[in-house]
Amino acid sequence: MSDDAFLRVSEVSKWYGDEQVLDGVSFEMDRGDVTVLIGPSGSGKSTMLRCVNRLAEAQEGSITLDGEEVLSPDTDVDELRRDVGMVFQSFNLFAHLTATGNVALGPRRVLGLSEEEARDRAAAQLERVGLADQLDSYPAELSGGQQQRVGIARALAMEPKLMLFDEPTSALDPELIGEVLEVMRALVDEGMTMLVVTHEMSFARAVADEVVFLDDGRVVERGPPEQLFERPEKERTGRFLERIASHD
């Protein structure tokens, strides 16, 4: 890909103690791209995602976002995270706040909007994810699918340049997965740049520009979904995809 990639991850390595979890991971994304990270559990996909907004610290390598070095000690991580939205596997909604409160907190306290502006923005984002009728519901009153959509709205309310999805549907009952994927598809259609860790292969196949297969902290293989899914070059990729398929 070109030198002016929007997100460039190069030779990123990370250790937890003696254990190496990422080993020279590299990939790039252009603006508006959707990249899906797949791989067995423990392969380092979530860690890789978290290195991008520095919820995890990579010890080696470089990550540039929109030309700025993310891993530099001079980088203001709070500023970085304003631009990078994140959606969690376990939703992590603020339990004591309503849907509106959850989405409005960032705009209010991080972006410095007034209470009213923040609430308006929250309402607009919740409407965007189809929850206009749940503005005043608390997380514990919502289904998993609704909670995850609030989670997406919360990230979107910061108007991020890049969205990170960390297995957004893995904690959901099967019948609730569809509504979340639908919201994510709509984001793809709007041109959002998205880095997604998921086991939803049909989603990856449908929307990904590139699929990156990680195993043991290394990029085993990467390529467009049709190539990676139909004609994987590496044997390990093929075995992993077979295992996933037999579970579906």
């Binding site: 709070d78 969690f88 992590n92 306290r109 990230a155 910061m158």
Partner: peptide, 19 residues
């Protein structure tokens, strides 16, 4: 995960604790 989510939207650690 609550504090992680706070950090992820750009709140500092103290702000995440407070809010």
């Amino acid at each position: 995960g609550q504090i992680t989510a706070g950090r992820a939207i750009g709140l500092s650690k103290l702000e995440s604790i407070y809010y």
